[in-house]
Amino acid sequence: MIDFLLYALLAGLGVGLVAGPLGCFVVWRRMAYFGDTLAHSALLGVSLGVMLDINLNITVTAIPLMMALGLVFLEQRGLLSLDTLLGILSHSALAAGLIVISLLPDVRVDLMSLLFGDLLAVTKSDLGVIYSVSAVVLILLAILWKQLINITVNPELAAIEGTNVTVVSTALMLITALVIALAMKVVGVLLITALLIIPAATARRLSHTPEKMAVVASIIAMTTVVMGLAMSWFIDTPAGPSVVVSAALLFCLSLLYRRQLN
């Protein structure tokens, strides 16, 4: 009876755990708009998955990943600025996703839950997927951590010192696509970037090393999940937006915190 709340909580905690460190990279590398674009294309992934009858977990990861690789290709051709390219792809993907959904004749897809998440509908098998993917993401981040920091600081120096920048940044895209596929269940495609960015931005004021910032961001993201669910439970608000509002609230509180001078 209370199972669905427990599942929701566990799912949210699993996603919050990885949203912290990945969100840090999104903030450090100024990838917010990039994250948005991938998230919007995840909606296209859902609709194509339903239409072609493919496992949704696969299409929801594959379409954003293809979008990311397409972006890299277009950016290298240098026709338009990255900002403009992101604007074109992000909204085209969202629009195309909505159109494909509307074309599906017999299937009724709950659009609201795709756009804003449906945390309370998480099942036991969803939990299995969330925790195994989270584990993969954390392991990848741990292995690549130093190289990721290095290419974030300066890709040229990293390349000269022996880091394969293409491989490492492609791996980061793959990780981003995976986390977006997960976070979709919690906050929906429109709010994913918020779950990545707000905890990381909050953690910045409390941290003086990249590692500490990643851990603090994780803790904050998990806290906001608990706060959001509590809000949803007690005052009957939608879970996804409640999580994001809680994150924003914590961010505002962090602004009041003054750094102690040694």
């Binding site: 903030v27 450090w28 590398r29 100024r30 130093k146 920091i149 290095n150 974030t152 600081v153 300066n154 040229e156 120096l157 990293a158 010192e161 990381a200 931005a201 910045r204 941290s207 003086h208 090393t209 990249p210 500490k212 910032m213």
Partner: peptide
């Protein structure tokens, strides 16, 4: 390099910057 721009959101000390190499 000629110039280097590190986003202020990345908390990194001078020492840590060197340790990357």
């Amino acid at each position: 390099p000629q110039k280097i721009k590190i986003d202020p959101t990345l908390p990194i000390s001078t020492y840590r910057f060197l340790q990357l190499a």
